[in-house]
Design a binder for these strands. Structure first.
Lengths: 205, 205
DNA sequence: GTCTATATTCCGATAGAC
DNA sequence: GTCTATCGGAATATAGAC
């Protein structure tokens, strides 16, 4: 009995933090498959071939583990500014191409999927994701639109929201839900089609 | 003690199915607030001021309760055909206006939100929602586009997926996540802006 | 129809030996 | 760092009295 137990006397510390990495990797996969609530620490431990208690040794709580698991994708920060700086006429296509290229990176995708799920998960998780999204992205886009197009602040916010809604729908459909026709579409097709939409949300009065 | 218990000796059967309605109403609210996994039968029972066991009397399982709670929104079925029948040139605006009008109905919205959450909830809930969506909606749209525009089946599927992605993003942003600028936009503005997008996804080669 | 009581399982988290 | 053992609670679900 007790055969679900981890094998005992594990070589203490294979290499520095190797098991910790395995835990994070398993957590990303579990949160990505099941969403935050349905994912369990025990299932993550089993997936990482690790004792559940070890997870609590490395991470204080389930919420902390989730935060660490999705930390990576927040990186692109710098590139966003560069994209917004270019000429306004091709901003739509440029933005879509950048976002899609980012998502084609499997490492990014794996960490971003749990965040996309959390954004729609509950009325409690939504504001957490939205706060980050607004601070890192939406505010900058709205400011750029307001400055260039010289519209009111609320109009810029409205245009930004339209852009976000199409971006979210595209990414959710392609990478999370796997909608047929969208998940397997060539990137260039999407850049042209959705890029034109974004551009129109920027331009049209 | 045991003061969390329901008051005993409830008037047997207020009116036919009145408590059952209260349970369904509470379930819609809980599933809408927290999503399927985080919502609990106990919390639903407390919200409905009902004993948890009574829920199991009316509904066999949590999944059954969820299914019954969101059953209503599947109704519009008939109207979809009417919208697709009209002239192709204004199909975009017509579709957006119809969808938004539907969602402005609070009864529809309350039941549709849990479904939208479930669509992004996990890799297990996604196909359940998608199957319904495809059968009731996507297939018809794709057929109409393929017939009218005389494109290949896969091209029609691609266009339909683009349309769905923008629709999902708009509804999720406006009614589920409550994105500022989108949640409070006048319906006519959205009909014009998003309607034009949908129309372009139908038309542009 | 309604509720008490409970079976059964699983959860996140902790204490402490090694 | 790793694992055993377990705490304390909450989950869904069921059996059966009233």
């Amino acid at each position: 009995m007790s055969e679900l137990r981890r094998r005992r006397g594990r070589p203490p510390q294979d290499e520095a933090g190797k098991r910790r990495e395995a835990i994070l990797d398993a957590a990303i996969a579990e949160f990505g498959d099941k969403g935050y609530d349905a994912a369990t620490i025990r299932a993550i431990a089993e997936r990482a071939d690790v004792d559940p208690a070890l997870i609590h040794h490395y991470f204080d709580s389930k919420a902390d583990l989730f935060a660490d698991a999705v930390r990576f994708p927040l990186r692109p920060q710098a590139a966003i500014d560069a994209i917004l700086e270019g000429d306004m006429d091709q901003l739509g296509e440029r933005a879509v191409r950048y976002v899609l290229t980012l998502w084609e990176n499997p490492e990014f995708q794996r960490r971003a999927v749990p965040l996309m799920r959390a954004a729609m998960g509950s009325k409690f998780t939504t504001p957490i994701v939205m706060q980050f999204l607004n601070r890192e992205l939406a505010a900058k886009v709205a400011a750029r639109i307001a400055a260039e197009r010289q519209t009111s602040e609320s109009d810029a916010q409205y245009r930004t929201a339209l852009i976000l809604s199409q971006m979210y729908g595209m990414l959710a459909g392609r990478y999370v839900m796997g909608i047929p026709g969208l998940a397997d579409a060539p990137m260039d097709d999407l850049v042209a089609a959705v890029g034109a939409t974004i551009q129109r949300y920027i331009d049209t009065p």
